[in-house]
Amino acid sequence: MPKLSRTSRRTWIAAWAVLCAAGTAATVALNASPAPDPQPEKPVSAECAEYIADIESQLAEAKAQGSHDDGVLAFTRTRAGTDDCSDEVLDHFSGDR
């Protein structure tokens, strides 16, 4: 491996310092920027709203029966021709995580 001359070594150190300064400046700028606007809520079909309300009532019933948060509560829905409400359910309950 060839030996680097003093000038070449200084060039590499200067380039490294410039990149570090640019990275630090970019990090500060990103941290100072305001958070993006929240996404507006998408309209939910009546069937999905009914399904979400059913899940909430089952959760309230389980909590009223003394169920603890350390268990798993599962919901299934298998009717032919129904809307796929998985995205709406995830959007609705994502704040509870």
Rank of each mutant, 00 (worst) to 15 (best):
Y51N: 12
A25H: 01
C20V: 14
R9G: 01
A17Y: 01
D37Y: 01
D83Q: 04
W12Q: 15
P43H: 00
T11I: 06
L4A: 06
C48A: 06
C85H: 04
D54S: 13
A32F: 00
D91C: 04
D83P: 11
G81Y: 02
Q58L: 05
D96N: 03
D96L: 04
C48D: 09
C48P: 07
R9N: 10
L19Q: 13
S86H: 03
D83K: 09
W12F: 06
F75M: 03
T7S: 07
A32H: 02
V44R: 15
T11A: 06
T82H: 08
K63F: 00
A26E: 05
I52T: 08
A14D: 10
L30T: 11
D83N: 09
A26F: 11
A21C: 15
H92F: 05
H92V: 06
P38H: 00
A64R: 15
T27S: 12
T82Q: 14
S86W: 03
K63H: 09
R77F: 00
P34C: 00
A74K: 14
A74H: 04
T24S: 11
A17V: 13
E41T: 10
T82G: 10
R10T: 04
G66E: 10
A15M: 05
S5Q: 03
L4Y: 02
S94N: 08
G66C: 04
S86M: 09
A17F: 05
W12N: 14
E61K: 14
R79E: 11
Q39Y: 04
F93A: 03
M1F: 07
P2S: 03
T11M: 05
L30P: 02
A53R: 15
A49N: 10
A21S: 14
L4H: 06
P36F: 00
K42Q: 15
D91E: 15
A14L: 05
C85R: 08
D70M: 04
K42R: 15
T78I: 03
I13M: 11
Q65W: 01
S57P: 02
Q39G: 02
G81V: 04
T82M: 07
C48K: 02
I13G: 03
A64W: 05
A46V: 11
A62Y: 15
T82R: 13
D54Q: 10
E41N: 07
A32M: 10
R79A: 06
N31F: 05
G95H: 02
